[in-house]
């Protein structure tokens, strides 16, 4: 994986995230009109393949994008290099992916659409 591939991965993940962010915010603003409970949210998301794929891909893009962005900051501001830099940024990416995947699974698995 060259520096250029990491650059492309970060830009492409940003490209993927852009519509997800807009839909995420738009649906949130639309859905809370008139109040919304957790049970109502789960009622709509649990068992939905669409929201599973939507937030699943969103989480993958976020984990990649954030880890690569932080990798540059860690290199330039914290002076990390080589294996330490790769190790720390991979751990950040996997951590974000794990937390995000857990949340996606929690709101979309089970129940019935």
């Amino acid at each position: 994986m060259t520096a250029f591939h990491l650059y492309m991965a970060q830009r492409l993940s940003a490209l993927v995230m852009a519509p997800f962010v807009l839909v995420h915010l738009g649906v949130m603003i639309y859905a809370i009109q008139g109040g919304l409970t957790a049970a109502e949210i789960l009622g709509r998301t649990q068992g939905s393949l669409f929201w599973f794929l939507f937030y699943g891909m969103f989480v993958i893009a976020v984990a990649l994008h954030a880890a690569l962005g932080l990798r540059v900051i860690l290199a330039e501001w914290a002076g990390l290099r080589g294996g330490v830099l790769n190790g720390v940024s991979t751990a950040i990416g996997l951590g974000l992916l794990g937390l995000g995947a857990h949340a996606v699974w929690a709101v979309t698995a089970g129940g019935g659409a």
Binding site: T2, A3, F4, L6, Y7, V72
Partner: peptide
């Protein structure tokens, strides 16, 4: 210019 420390930095 695509390697480590190239234009993408």
């Amino acid at each position: 210019v695509s390697g480590k420390g190239g234009c993408h930095s």
